Amino acid sequence: MARAFEDKRSAHQKIAAGLRRQITRGDLAPGAQLPSTPALMELYGVAGTTVQKALLMLKEEELLIGQPGKGVFVKGSTQQAISPTVYMPPAAPGEPYRWISEAEKRSQRGSSKLLEVAEVIPPHEVATALGLEEGERALLREQVLLLDEEPTELTRSYYPLELAQGTAMMERRKIRGGTPTLLSSLGYPPREFVDEVSSEIPTQEEAVALELPKDMPVMLTFRVVYSDDDRPIEVSLLAKAAHRYRMRYRLPIT
């Protein structure tokens, strides 16, 4: 028998959660009008101030928009599915970074903003995945990826210094085609990657970079990319706004 458990969230948080799920899963479509405040008060058995707090949360998340004299409407869309596998192959010669080319296929504008390029002592799990000794440094390239000027993903990618030194990866500038293309040209093409995906409370850096509303978690991906002979060539921490995106994987069953 399942043990009793009480949802201790406030009433407006519970209402917002239910409406958010209807929006992100498409049950409330973009442009749909929500019931009036009195109707929502009756539906949920709460006061008007509680309804307004719930709607304010979703407005701050840019899922709802109020139109004076008309009502409250769904502004956001269903969550956008991102397929990691399409971004992994190196770009063809002369082609842009796959984040940009894949966005164009969806009639979106993809761009990136480089935040930092530095030699650092990486986090413990990154060092372990790269096979580094304690205190050994790696190259960090940190950037924000954007879709239609909206911050979408904070990417912190780490590379073994022995691969990066003497290359454009060490320079504070964007790389044509992205690092997968450069690594492939050096004889280290990406062959396989392993993702571990979790939902976590954002750090201050993540909240600011992704312009997250209050109390919104991030979808955090810990990714290890391998080249030939299972050599790790890149380890990344990828943070996405959890209410805007979902991951899509299509894998063969063997």
Score class of each variant (00 low, 15 high):
residue 93 P to G: 09
residue 248 R to T: 11
residue 145 L to M: 04
residue 192 E to N: 11
residue 185 S to E: 15
residue 129 A to S: 12
residue 231 R to M: 01
residue 177 G to H: 00
residue 35 P to L: 03
residue 131 G to Y: 06
residue 70 K to F: 15
residue 176 R to I: 15
residue 59 K to R: 08
residue 164 A to C: 14
residue 233 I to H: 07
residue 170 M to W: 00
residue 251 L to Q: 12
residue 193 F to Q: 04
residue 244 R to G: 06
residue 36 S to Q: 02
residue 232 P to L: 06
residue 244 R to V: 08
residue 121 I to Y: 06
residue 156 R to F: 08
residue 162 E to R: 15
residue 137 R to F: 08
residue 40 L to W: 05
residue 31 G to M: 04
residue 39 A to P: 00
residue 228 D to Y: 08
residue 81 A to T: 06
residue 184 S to W: 03
residue 241 A to G: 12
residue 18 G to S: 10
residue 121 I to M: 09
residue 89 P to N: 08
residue 62 E to D: 13
residue 6 E to L: 15
residue 176 R to Q: 15
residue 174 K to M: 15
residue 84 P to A: 05
residue 96 P to N: 13
residue 185 S to F: 11
residue 116 E to T: 11
residue 183 L to R: 01
residue 124 H to S: 13
residue 95 E to N: 12
residue 230 D to K: 14
residue 125 E to C: 14
residue 151 P to Q: 01
residue 52 Q to L: 13
residue 232 P to V: 05
residue 230 D to L: 11
residue 156 R to H: 10
residue 68 P to N: 07
residue 203 T to C: 13
residue 35 P to S: 07
residue 100 I to E: 04
residue 110 G to H: 01
residue 209 A to P: 05
residue 84 P to T: 07
residue 47 A to W: 04
residue 23 I to H: 02
residue 196 E to I: 13
residue 63 L to Q: 02
residue 207 A to G: 06
residue 237 L to A: 13
residue 217 P to V: 09
residue 117 V to E: 04
residue 53 K to I: 04
residue 57 M to G: 05
residue 106 R to C: 09
residue 105 K to P: 12
residue 149 E to R: 08
residue 168 A to F: 12
residue 202 P to K: 11
residue 95 E to V: 09
residue 54 A to E: 07
residue 110 G to C: 00
residue 180 P to F: 03
residue 182 L to A: 10
residue 54 A to R: 05
residue 122 P to F: 04
residue 107 S to E: 15
residue 159 Y to N: 01
residue 192 E to F: 15
residue 223 R to I: 09
residue 185 S to W: 13
residue 13 Q to A: 12
residue 156 R to S: 11
residue 107 S to P: 03
residue 127 A to I: 07
residue 40 L to M: 08
residue 20 R to K: 14
residue 252 P to I: 03
residue 154 L to Y: 04
residue 118 A to Y: 02
residue 157 S to K: 04
residue 15 I to C: 02
residue 218 V to A: 09
residue 92 A to G: 13
residue 50 T to S: 07
residue 210 L to M: 11
residue 171 E to F: 08
residue 38 P to I: 05
residue 61 E to R: 07
residue 192 E to L: 15
residue 198 S to Q: 14
residue 20 R to N: 06
residue 173 R to I: 11
residue 151 P to A: 03
residue 249 Y to Q: 10
residue 148 D to G: 01
residue 168 A to E: 15
residue 48 G to N: 11
residue 53 K to P: 06
residue 5 F to Q: 10
residue 53 K to M: 11
residue 190 P to L: 01
residue 196 E to T: 13
residue 232 P to D: 02
residue 115 L to C: 09
residue 22 Q to W: 14
residue 183 L to M: 15
residue 83 S to E: 13
residue 136 E to W: 14
residue 205 E to K: 14
residue 178 G to V: 03
residue 42 E to Y: 01
residue 206 E to P: 04
residue 31 G to K: 05
residue 20 R to M: 12
residue 91 A to I: 01
residue 218 V to C: 11
residue 159 Y to M: 04
residue 143 Q to K: 15
residue 197 V to T: 03
residue 249 Y to K: 10
residue 12 H to T: 02
residue 138 A to P: 14
residue 75 K to D: 01
residue 3 R to C: 12
residue 40 L to D: 05
residue 7 D to T: 05
residue 97 Y to Q: 09
residue 11 A to H: 14
residue 134 E to K: 10
residue 82 I to Y: 00
residue 233 I to A: 06
residue 192 E to V: 11
residue 197 V to H: 00
residue 237 L to M: 14
residue 191 R to S: 10
residue 57 M to S: 13
residue 118 A to D: 09
residue 99 W to G: 06
residue 193 F to Y: 12
residue 27 D to S: 08
residue 119 E to N: 12
